[in-house]
Simulated scan of single mutants.
Amino acid sequence: MRGTVNGIEITSRVIFLPGNSNGDGYWTNIDLTIQLKDVIPLFNELHPDCIGIFAFDQSSNHKDMADDALVASRMSSGVTEYKDTNKYRFRDTTFTDKEGRVKAQPMYRTETVNMEGVKKIVATRRAKQQPVSFEDLMNQYRLPRAREVFRGTLILLRERGLLDKNASLRKVCPSGTVHDPAVRPGCCAEYLLSQQPDFLAQKNILETVTFEAGHLFTLYPKYHCETNWIERQWGAAKRYSRMMCDYSFYTLTSRIHEFLDNDEVVHGPKINRRYYNLAYRYIDAYRKGKDVMEADEIIRKFSREYRSHRRAV
């Protein structure tokens, strides 16, 4: 994004050289989030009192969730110890029970005794009708130091009344399984928990940053780059760079801003609006139920008939 604020031209642009050896690594969601936080204030300066729609393509990088987000696929079904090296630490949440009461649900608990070990010994001895001394077991499985553990998806489901006390449920279904939300208790713990309102309400990082700034977030449809106007701007920049570059890395890096801005230099700043209008016509055609071939014909017909905003040709 580029614009003039108080007579000063300001550009929000990051030049990134991918690669692990001599480059900047890989472009991650963290890098994109930093740039988004740089773009939003510039948008607010250029368009005060306006709400922007920030659109991204369907890259998995753009849909990355925060490390504390409630994502069932990241959770273990059983109790596991939380360590400082763990990538994720899930936020506590709330749920509404069958009586309509809102209840808090912590994700972690502190243990001084290895309760999972105690439960296994108790279950084994009871099955063999052997005596059980809870005091001895508590002393035997007492931990040298207190530890924090993730409580596991099965416990979370039982607390919500979605799984019987002694029932078990596999963590995840085999690949390709078609899930049926009408089936209870569900085919697997991961899917059942992922369909709960608080899990469904989770937003990705970019969406969260955008909404917190008072703007809107959306994703372009998959496999339809024609709906994203920025692809045309990139295409123009790459076409010009092929014409002017001597295919040396030095020339490319030293003139990259010239390559990126050439389209506006030659055709004026309104060229990007033309790219946007063309993308919008595809979006409008798809909204009306047209397929790819029909949409393409509509755009071609429009381009032949309306070569100027003042007259039809």
Rank of each mutant, 00 (worst) to 15 (best):
A123T: 08
M107D: 03
V113A: 01
Y141M: 11
R147A: 04
D64Q: 14
R125Q: 12
N86Y: 06
R101C: 07
V113W: 00
K119E: 14
I53G: 06
D92H: 10
R74K: 12
H62Y: 08
N139K: 13
R101I: 13
G100W: 05
I51G: 03
D67N: 11
V118P: 03
K103D: 05
F56K: 03
K128W: 04
S73F: 07
E135K: 13
F90C: 00
R142H: 09
A146N: 11
V132M: 10
K119P: 01
D136M: 09
A146I: 00
D84Y: 07
G117D: 10
T85D: 11
H62V: 07
S133Y: 02
G78W: 05
R109L: 01
V113R: 01
K83R: 13
K63I: 04
M65R: 03
F95P: 01
N139C: 07
N86H: 14
K87T: 11
S60W: 02
F56A: 02
F134Q: 15
A66I: 10
F95Y: 15
E111N: 08
N139M: 09
I53H: 14
R147P: 00
K119L: 09
S133W: 01
N61K: 11
K103M: 11
I121T: 10
E81W: 01
D67K: 13
E99N: 13
Y88V: 03
Q105S: 12
F54E: 02
G52H: 07
E148C: 00
T80D: 01
Q129Y: 07
C50K: 15
R145L: 06
M65P: 00
C50M: 09
G100Q: 05
N61Y: 03
S60N: 14
N114K: 03
F95I: 08
I53Y: 14
V102F: 02
A55G: 06
C50I: 04
M65L: 10
D64M: 14
M115D: 02
H62L: 09
V118R: 00
T80K: 08
G117P: 03
E99W: 07
E135L: 09
Q130D: 12
M107W: 06
V132E: 10
T96N: 06
Y82H: 14
L137N: 06
